[in-house]
Amino acid sequence: MTETVKLKNITIVLNQPRYPENIGAAVRAMRNMGIDRLIVVDPRDYDLEKIRKMATHGCLDTVAAIQRQTDLKAALESFHYVIGTTARLGGQRRTGKPDATAEKIVSISQENQVAVVFGREDRGLSNEELRLCHELVHIPTAEFSSLNLAQAVMIMCYELFNACVPSKPAFTPRMAQRRELDAMLDQLRDILIRISYINPENPDYWMHHLRQFFTRIQARAREVSIIRGLIRQVDWYAEKRYRDGRRDERNRIMGKGAAECD
Results as ranks from 00 to 15, higher is better:
Gln110His: 10
Phe214Pro: 04
Arg189Val: 01
Arg44Glu: 15
Thr101Pro: 01
Pro200Trp: 01
Leu14Met: 07
Ala170Gln: 12
Asp71His: 13
Val114Ile: 13
Glu129Arg: 06
Val27Thr: 04
Glu201Pro: 00
Gly96Ile: 03
Leu38Ala: 09
Gln69Asp: 15
Trp236Cys: 14
Thr62Asn: 09
Arg94Cys: 08
Glu249Val: 06
Thr70Tyr: 07
Gln187Leu: 10
Trp206Gln: 15
Met54Gly: 06
Asn251Lys: 11
Arg250Val: 12
Ser109Arg: 03
Ala29Tyr: 00
Lys53Cys: 11
Thr215Met: 09
Arg241Ala: 08
Thr141Cys: 09
Asn127His: 05
Ala163Leu: 08
Arg228Tyr: 01
Gly90Val: 02
Leu89Met: 13
Asp45Glu: 13
Thr215Asp: 03
Lys104Thr: 12
Ser146Thr: 09
Asn127Thr: 09
Ile226Val: 12
Ala65Met: 05
Leu76Glu: 04
Leu60Asp: 13
Ile195Ser: 05
Ile105Ser: 02
Ala26Asp: 05
Phe79Gly: 15
Tyr242Asn: 15
Asn148Gln: 04
Thr215His: 03
Arg250Tyr: 00
Phe79Asn: 15
Val40Trp: 03
Glu249Asp: 15
Gln218Phe: 00
Leu132Ala: 12
Lys8Gln: 15
Arg247Glu: 14
Glu180Gln: 13
Leu188Arg: 06
Ile195Cys: 09
Phe144Ala: 15
Ala152Met: 06
Glu21Gln: 13
Asp42Met: 05
Gln177Lys: 14
Gly91Asp: 12
Ile226Ser: 08
Val234Ile: 14
Ser167Gln: 11
Ser126Gln: 11
Lys50Gly: 08
Ile23Asp: 06
Leu7Ser: 11
Leu89Gly: 05
Arg93Trp: 00
Gly119Tyr: 00
Lys240Glu: 15
Arg178Asp: 11
Asn15Tyr: 04
Thr141Val: 10
Pro169Gln: 10
Met33Phe: 08
Ile198Tyr: 00
Met33Asn: 02
Asp262Val: 11
